[in-house]
């Protein structure tokens, strides 16, 4: 009767007496030193980073993220947030996928195996509801990394997973090797037609919905896709969710930097505390 995905929670004692997993009970994020095991460049702009850290890797759930800082001194000052693409409690590892865009991510790219980095995590809300039978991802670019952990967890629960990977060109398709093994069907779309469908990958989702039963859709990496999924959600065709980003300094709800407007009701969510994934009907896109 207990909620799924215990296997990734290791020995952390946070179960209620009745055996139900207490979703509302927060696990304290930890601030720890992690060791770089692998730092692999993927194409021009991407970095696949494998870290060893014995505690955070035990408690990180799907949908969660961490803050990482890999340089001394005060410039650049702030740690950077990344989705936890995989966490392996047995190997005590955490895998991140980084799009190199600015100074902080360029410094991450220069990391060598053996280097030590500071991480705070797990952050954000873990995804704990697996009470449905089929799931589709509509993800673009490095946004694919956000859903890998969820895809693995859902697959382990017997949920059928469809993955639509979108990119500007074939050379920009990332995380395929992580999503392929856990996807019943993996569909590619590129803007230039260099691989798979040529055109907006939201067409691929529409096509999938015509062919298959899909209960939920998670999208990440494209505002345009998010609006499309929000429309499908509004029409009642699927239940949609979106992973959002925000400029954030702390990751734990202190700085209030990562505000995203609520849909219709005024006010803001914090990506770090209320997300990073949201029921897509609830956010203004």
């Amino acid at each position: 009767m207990s909620q799924p995905y215990h296997r990734n929670r290791g020995f952390v004692a946070f179960f209620c007496g009745n055996g139900y997993h207490c979703g509302e009970m927060s696990i304290h994020p930890l601030y720890r030193t992690a060791t770089v095991l692998e730092a692999t460049e993927e194409g021009r702009d991407y970095l696949d980073l494998l870290l060893r850290e014995p505690e955070i890797s035990q408690i990180a759930g799907p949908g969660q993220f961490l803050m990482i800082r890999a340089w001394p001194g005060v410039d650049p000052m702030l740690p950077r947030p990344f989705d936890i693409m995989q966490s392996d409690p047995r190997e005590q590892t955490i895998r991140l996928f980084v799009k190199v865009e600015g100074r902080g991510t360029a410094l991450l790219r220069s990391l060598k195996p053996g280097a030590e980095v500071k991480i705070t995590g797990p952050l954000g809300r873990p995804i704990e509801d697996f009470s449905y039978s089929s799931l589709a991802f509509l993800v673009r670019g490095a946004g694919a990394a956000a859903v890998v952990h969820l895809a693995e967890a859902a697959g382990a629960q017997g949920i059928v997973v469809y993955t639509i990977l979108s990119a500007s060109a074939a050379s920009r398709i990332v995380c395929r090797k992580y999503l392929e093994p856990v996807s019943t069907e993996l569909i590619i779309g590129t803007d230039d037609g260099s691989e798979g469908y040529e055109g907006p990958a939201s067409d691929l989702l529409d096509d999938l919905l015509r062919r298959k039963t899909v209960d939920r859709v998670y999208t990440c990496g494209s505002r345009r896709f998010a609006r499309h999924v929000q429309r499908l959600d509004r029409e009642g065709r699927i239940k949609g969710f979106v992973f959002l980003e925000g400029l954030m300094a702390c990751g734990v709800g202190d700085c209030h930097g990562c505000a995203v407007p609520k849909n219709g009701q005024g006010g803001y969510f914090l990506v770090c505390r209320d997300g990073p994934h949201f029921p897509i009907a609830e956010v203004a896109l």
Binding site: M77, G246, L247, M248, A249, C255, H256, G257, A259
Partner: peptide
């Protein structure tokens, strides 16, 4: 109070700008 519209923060050399607006 809801606080200010995003973007609310911006990293600068050895510091950051914020305009959170005290939610």
């Amino acid at each position: 109070r809801p606080g200010n519209p995003p973007p609310r923060i911006w990293e600068t050399p050895c510091g950051m700008l914020n305009a959170i607006g005290i939610p």
